[in-house]
């Protein structure tokens, strides 16, 4: 009986955490999502991150979608709030260069956040994007980003590459 209770006490938090962490897929490509409670991180799409190459010289130049989206979240009054970003390409059969896309901070409403002004190269692993120190009150801060398609040095096979950039906000 003790074993069952111990197991239950361990499993319940896992189940609850998974439910909290799930943001769900957006209904349409390029749309924002968020679930509407006070701990949410929300994304608002300003300019969809759709890129098209039309000639070979464009492979060697960066392409930028300026003011692509706005991240907003409420800062914790007690701890650092961190936002991580990672990317997932749907074309698993194609190899995609590491760091093909980057995010660059365009502007933000926070004067205390630590957010790199240099482009942050996206990877399949979470990369730290923003560290917002604790702020008294229940302030919501916004961070607007450009999406950069970086120049290529290696072949990328002709195809249509759909990607999802996932933002994870953590509070210790």
């Amino acid at each position: 009986m003790k074993k069952y209770i111990l197991l239950l006490s361990l499993l319940l938090p896992v189940a609850c955490s998974a439910q909290v962490a799930y943001g769900g897929p957006p209904s349409n490509p390029g749309n924002s999502n968020g679930v509407g409670n006070s701990y949410d991180i929300n994304v608002q799409i300003n300019n969809p991150a759709y890129f098209t190459y039309t000639n070979v010289d464009e492979l060697l130049q960066p392409k930028v979608v300026t003011n692509a989206f706005q991240l907003s979240f409420k800062a914790s009054p007690h701890e650092n709030t961190r936002v991580f970003a990672q990317i997932d390409f749907s074309n698993k059969r194609r190899s995609v260069p590491e760091g093909w896309l980057s995010l660059k901070l365009f502007n933000s409403t926070s004067s205390t956040a630590v957010a790199d002004n240099n482009p942050v190269a996206l990877s399949s692993y979470p990369m730290l994007l923003i560290t917002q120190p604790p702020v008294p009150g229940n302030n919501t801060y916004s961070f607007v980003y450009n999406v950069i398609l970086n120049p290529l040095t290696k072949h990328v096979r002709p195809d249509n590459y759909n990607f999802t950039i996932k933002f994870t906000m953590t509070k210790p």
């Binding site: 962490a21 949410d40 991150a49 759709y50 890129f51 999406v147 990607f163 994870t168």
Partner: peptide, 11 residues
């Protein structure tokens, strides 16, 4: 933790 996503495309 909380998640949100942006989707895009490279042609």
């Amino acid at each position: 933790s909380q998640n949100a996503t942006v989707q895009g495309n490279v042609s």
